[in-house]
């Protein structure tokens, strides 16, 4: 039976979702919030993992995350439509479309310049939102709790129902991403990192591969942003601030490029460490977070994805490492 689960991704996704649901039913309410948050942000990290597979890192993913949250919140507030699925799909599609357009320009950039160009764009969005007093400016704006296919849960069931919703979305998206990663186009991303010229010789357009992955990553960030907006009920421009993007990059490096589940695991781990450090050391939680960052990079060079595999699945990202 286990073999059947492990060799079939859809079944694995189903089992994961069922396990998470079962765990969720046992968790107290305040852990459910963090768990929902972790799964939602895990989608953003999943998008960054797609970029990392191409050897690209964005310090501006907060832009799509923020935009997704605002699409979800503003459309919901303006139209009165509170259906969670409709809103988050809208967020994802909107960001994916913007990502496809910007990706055409950004695909010419590599390394730090790619990362920083993204940062510049997200800071421009941040600056614009600070000025947008009609949507709350820097204080942000509240959004109504979501409904699910016409069903509006009462306060007691809101957390668990939202958690279930995020679990289903995360499992579905995780599964789709896994299938994509193993597809021809998905594997081409790895080739972009290894050798762009060889990829061109094979008749594939490097640029197209980058744009495609970038757009998907943007869509995932938008989806995650929309979900976070719904779970926290309040959206603020800070979502686009560079430190938010920095946190996502941290979670991505913590996850490593090799696994879907690791993306969610890394996010959960990060959120938990931050919460627990804040609980026990209100005066030194940043120090704990910094130390956690250093130690995890030191002992998990390829992320927690590689840890569970029990061996180094990917080679060191930088082939020139001996030069140092």
């Amino acid at each position: 039976m286990i073999h059947a689960v492990t060799s079939s991704p859809p079944l694995a996704a189903l089992v994961c979702a069922a396990a998470l649901m079962a765990v969720g039913l046992m968790l107290p309410d305040w852990v459910l919030f963090t768990a929902s948050l972790a799964l939602a942000k895990g989608l953003v990290v999943l998008g960054l993992v797609l970029l990392l597979r191409m050897g690209a890192v964005s310090f501006g993913q907060g832009m799509y995350y923020c935009l997704g949250a605002y699409i979800c919140g503003l459309v919901g507030n303006a139209t009165g439509v509170q259906d969670a699925l409709f809103l988050v799909i809208l967020s994802g599609l909107g960001c994916c479309a913007l990502g496809a357009v910007l990706g055409v320009f950004l695909s010419a950039y590599r390394g730090v310049f790619f990362a920083m160009f993204n940062l510049a764009l997200s800071m421009i969005l941040y600056g614009a939102l600070l000025k947008a007093t009609s949507v709350g400016g820097s204080d942000g704006i509240g959004i109504a709790p979501p409904s699910y296919f016409g069903l509006s849960p009462s306060d007691e069931y809101r957390s668990i129902l939202f958690y279930a919703f995020v679990v289903v979305i995360a499992a579905g998206v995780g599964l789709a991403t896994r299938i994509y990663m193993r597809s021809e186009l998905g594997l081409a991303a790895l080739a972009v990192r290894d050798n762009e010229i060889r990829l061109e010789y094979l008749g594939l357009s490097v640029r197209r591969v980058i744009v495609f992955n970038y757009a998907i990553a943007a869509g995932l960030a938008g989806l995650g942003g929309g979900l976070v907006a719904l779970v926290s009920g309040h959206i603020i421009p800070e979502f686009a601030y560079w430190t938010t993007s920095g946190e996502f990059v941290f979670m991505t490096v913590l996850s490593g490029p090799s696994s879907i589940v690791a993306a969610f695991g890394a996010t959960a781990l990060f959120e938990t460490v931050r919460l627990v450090a804040g609980q026990y050391l209100p005066n030194a939680w940043q120090l704990m977070l910094g130390a956690f960052l250093l130690l995890s990079i030191l002992f998990l060079p390829n992320g927690i994805g590689a840890l569970a595999a029990g061996r180094r699945r990917t080679r060191a990202p930088d082939a020139k490492e001996d030069a140092r």
Binding site: V15, V23, V31, A268, V276, A308
Partner: peptide, 23 residues
Amino acid sequence: MTGRFKKTGLLAVAFAAAIGLGQ
């Protein structure tokens, strides 16, 4: 192949463990 899925399983458990840690 199965090693990879062992990883998936482990990570699912790790995820649950991580969010349960606070509890």
